[in-house]
Amino acid sequence: MEPLFAIVIGIMFAITVFLFLSRSFVRIVLGIFMLSNATHLLIFTAGRLTFESPPLIPYDQSVPIEAIANPLPQALILTAIVISFALFAFVLILTYRAYQELGTVDVDEMNASEPRAAASEEAAE
């Protein structure tokens, strides 16, 4: 199973890179989303894959009786999903606000925070 997951994760990272190279900011934001999903899958795979054995301990036992799936990566992924959900929502709103203010999502046209030297000289005159 691991090689299959590795290939899938690799494809997702490739999509991320492709989206990051775009000049449209919306695509870059989608790239972040894809990147965080690829990362969650990567943590899941790094925690070793087990088939059909949920990490549950029977009611009258205090230790698992057979080999179970590793619950820690799942906890990590849950935390990471919660965090990336919050940050993604924020970045999405921010992009929307920036689009309203700047009137563009093209990264080449976003230079209000770093005006080019020539532009600032013109402004000074």
Binding site: A86, A89, F90, I93, Y96, R97, Q100
Partner: peptide, 13 residues
């Protein structure tokens, strides 16, 4: 609270 705040913010714009 935080999801409601985000949703309200988006809606009221």
């Amino acid at each position: 609270g935080s999801v409601a705040a985000i949703a309200l913010e988006l809606e009221e714009w």
